[in-house]
């Protein structure tokens, strides 16, 4: 049986660990709260832009814009959103696994696909496997603003228009609730289901100056906001996943402390019993 001192030091260190995980859990809970608020304040913008896009898309069915055209797919890009830091349970691994599997199943050679990595964990993962990374973004804060993502989003869309790739898929964790997150894959470009989205049917619009020029502004902005929306979603999931992971860690630590305390008490009792036996034995020997 381990010595009293050994058990004691294990109890102390487990306690310390549980304090840390507990603190991280609370921090993540607070961040989740804020992330949810951010996601909420993004909703009116997204709804509105969706509505306008679907209205405009319906009206201008015959207008051709490079972002609407489906081309023969020679190269597919995957925009994979992960976090910068670990300790978030299966958050990163599930996204990466699903993205990696999709790539292995759909493509024969590495020329057929590429990755746009948001988040350090994802970038390192793909780098290690020597999967081509076209662009990357790391070091995002816990609360992302649109400005932080704007450049990457714009570049990505420009690359699609220039023909660097013919399809863009988003892979990220969708926030369902604080305990459930779902890996989601969405095809972002080309924008194909325009006009089929919700939104009320309104009278036809006047375009100022012309339909083409309105779409020129509208479609990139729409795609950028879809990317931003996915990022907000993923951030909320990240904090939720980390919160759950840390809660589990804290619970496990508590269990461990309980069982360690039990064996500590047992060992102490054994030591006392032994001491008494020795004294009694010693006294008996003197008589």
């Amino acid at each position: 049986m381990a010595s009293l001192r050994d058990i004691k030091s294990r109890i102390t260190s487990t306690k310390k660990t549980s304090q840390i995980t507990k603190a991280m859990q609370m921090v993540s809970a607070a961040k989740l709260n804020r992330a949810e608020n951010n996601a909420k304040s993004f909703v009116p913008y997204m709804d509105k832009i969706q509505e306008v896009v679907s209205n405009v898309g319906r009206v201008s069915g015959n207008v051709k814009h490079p972002m609407l055209l489906s081309r023969e797919v020679k190269k597919t890009a995957y925009l994979v959103i992960t976090s910068d830091r670990g300790l978030a349970g299966a958050f990163n691994s599930s996204v990466l696994r699903s993205a990696y599997q999709a790539m292995q199943e759909r493509h024969q050679s590495k020329d057929e696909y590429a990755v746009i990595a948001i988040g350090r964990v994802g970038r390192d993962f793909f780098k290690k496997r020597e999967i081509p990374i076209i662009s990357e973004l790391t070091g995002l804060g816990d609360e992302v603003t649109f400005t932080e993502i704007k450049d990457l989003a714009r570049q990505t869309i420009q690359m699609f228009i220039d023909g660097a790739f013919d399809e863009l898929h988003l892979v990220y964790n969708h926030f369902v609730s604080a305990i459930t997150q779902e890996v989601t894959e969405k095809k972002l470009l080309p924008l194909s289901d325009l006009g089929s989205g919700g939104g009320k049917r309104t009278a036809s619009y006047e375009f100022e100056p012309s339909e083409e020029e309105v779409l020129e502004v509208l479609l990139p902005q729409y795609a950028e906001s879809l990317i931003f929306g996915a990022l907000l979603d993923s951030k909320a999931s990240e904090h939720a996943a980390r919160m759950t992971a840390m809660k589990n860690a804290t619970d496990n630590a508590k269990e461990l402390i309980d069982s360690l305390s039990l064996s500590y008490n047992r060992a102490r009792q054994a030591a006392i019993t032994q001491e008494i036996t020795e004294i009694v034995g010693g006294a008996a020997a003197l008589e």
Partner: peptide
């Protein structure tokens, strides 16, 4: 983009960058 635009109530539906 095409110039200044003043909008009063009852304007016809328009989209402009």
């Amino acid at each position: 983009e095409s110039g200044d635009l003043g909008i009063l109530p009852g304007h016809i539906p328009t989209v402009a960058p």
